[in-house]
Design a protein around this nucleic acid. Structure first.
Lengths: 206, 206
DNA sequence: ACGCGCTCTAAGCGCTTGCTCAGCCTCGGG
DNA sequence: CCCGAGGCTGAGCAAGCGCTTAGAGCGCGT
């Protein structure tokens, strides 16, 4: 099963080892209980360390959230930009974007849940920085849809609204997806790619 | 503008007056900061009372969330069931369900945000009760789609998955909608009704 | 062999949290 | 006019919070 409870690969390049363990522990804890309900003692405990060890690698608990949010948002943005700049017709690129974006949100639903639903807990400056990343995410989807409309492939009246809805639909996967559910990340990705193609007025597959 | 910051009408029949003020104060606070980041002092303060007054009308802070969640979920379920049992073709009923459900989530986005995104903070028994309501919500949408498929109006392979996606799309409105955004609740409702009809393979309006 | 720097811990500080309680109001019935 | 009941407050308790500090352990260059 590709749906891992423990987040791993996205933190592979974090050093030192203890910092990575703390980060992944924080991801799990934040995803399970939410940022505010998670204590620094819980995070340190999951990483097999004392509470004080956290403050050698991170200045505050909020910095943990910021780092997690930054990595996650940059990864998500990368996925959408790759799809946008890829080869193929707009419909192919949109389907590709949705499939990969959804698959990531399902496979890494712990990380994704933190990334998508805990940004209100960020400090003011960090929040502004992350919001800027989200605007770029929005733009990437919108641009694919604009390409499709310009090419006459899509029939969309409200491009902004449709892009918002598409992103909203995909993001919400992180909320309801669980590894022990009846669908694999691949299946959800395929299902959603098909639904989104219909939403832009292109009824038959890729 | 129909989009009110302050939640009102859904609590009209709560007595005594002080209990209602505390409930609406809690809705605002939970929506803004989240359940765990909200203090009982904050709630009581917004209601113009001392912290101790809260415990005359509610046994715990969690009971406030439970009451809010119960009212909200029952209201949402009522909306969908009304649409499901209404007159008209499956397409008309689906569009009606989405339009009204989305409009409610936009208009009452403070209440809806608490209802949809804070249920993890509920105690075990209360959580189970609310989850049962959500399953019925799910079923209502699924049944409309099943009707449409049976009538040959919809072309849907995965009814369960599509129903899940439709509900997910609508629910997520509570996350991003703000009263000062560029769209009214009515506009979002209409947009989403159109998108959902396309998702079930019925491309042209009602 | 030795000191330096880095990592980590035990203990705990100051503060806030959810919640309690003794007592003060206000108001209706006798 | 008094009394008791219920709504409400000021003060505060025990527990838990984020975070700090003093110092121990360890690896490494010299």
């Amino acid at each position: 099963m590709g749906a891992d409870q423990r987040p791993t690969e996205e933190w592979a390049d974090v050093t030192p080892d203890a910092a990575r363990r703390l980060l992944t522990a924080a991801v799990q804890a934040f995803a399970e209980r939410g940022y505010h309900a998670t204590t620094t003692r819980d995070i340190a405990g999951r990483a097999g360390m004392s509470p004080a060890a956290l403050y050698i690698h991170f200045r505050t608990k909020e910095e943990l959230l910021y780092r997690i949010s930054g990595v996650g948002h940059r990864l998500a943005l990368g996925i959408l930009r790759d799809a946008r700049d890829g080869a193929g017709t707009p419909a192919e690129r949109l389907a590709d974007a949705v499939r990969r974006f959804v698959r990531w949100h399902a496979e890494h639903h712990t990380t994704a849940r933190v990334v998508q639903y805990e940004l209100g807990a960020l400090g003011e400056e960090h929040h502004a920085e992350i919001v800027a990343l989200r605007r770029e995410t929005d733009a990437a989807v919108r641009e694919i849809i604009e390409d499709g409309v310009a090419a006459g492939e899509f029939a969309v009246d409200d491009v902004r609204g449709t892009a918002l809805a598409v992103l909203s639909l995909c993001v919400d996967v992180a909320r309801w997806f669980t590894a022990d559910g009846r669908r694999t990340p691949d299946e959800v990705g395929d299902l959603y790619a098909g639904l989104v193609l219909r939403m832009v007025g292109r009824p038959h597959g890729i």
